[in-house]
Amino acid sequence: MKEPKLSLHYDIDGTDFLAAGSASSDTKRILKQSGIDARVIRNVAIAMYEGEINTVIHAGGGTADVNIYDDCIEIILTDHGPGIENVEQAMQEGFSTAPENVRALGFGAGMGLPNMKKYTDEMTVESEIGTGTVVTMKVNL
C-alpha cells in the first residue's frame, strides 16, 4: 500500500468514560477540512467512535491511528485489554459484556462491533486473550 497522505495518532484515555470520543471528534473535524464527502466522514466518525467507546469500556484505553490514503481511510484501534474471547459471538447484534453502569450511560447494547462493520467497507478483529485487541477498519473513498 502507498504511503498515507495524512496520518493521525491518538492516545485513548481509559479512565474517563465521559471524556471518550475526543479522538473521533478531532478526526471528524480534520476530515471535514480535507473536503472529503460528508457521508464518508460520517461513516468513519461513527465506526471510530464506537471503537473508541469499546476501547474505554472494555480495555482501559488504547490508541487510535487514522491513515488517509488516496482511495480509502484506514482506522486502527489497538488496546492491551483482556482480549475478546469469541470474536464471532461479539460480532452478533445484541451480544454484550458491558457492565450495568455503562448501560446506564446509554451504551452497551451489543451494537458496537456490528455497527462498526456496517459503516465500513472492510473490518478485521485480531484478538488474543490476555494480550489485547487490534481492530482495523477501512472506508473507501
Partner: peptide, 12 residues
Amino acid sequence: NPQVVRTAEMMD
C-alpha cells in the same frame, strides 16, 4: 451526559 453530544456530533 456528554456522550449524547458526541453521538449527535458523529451523526451530523
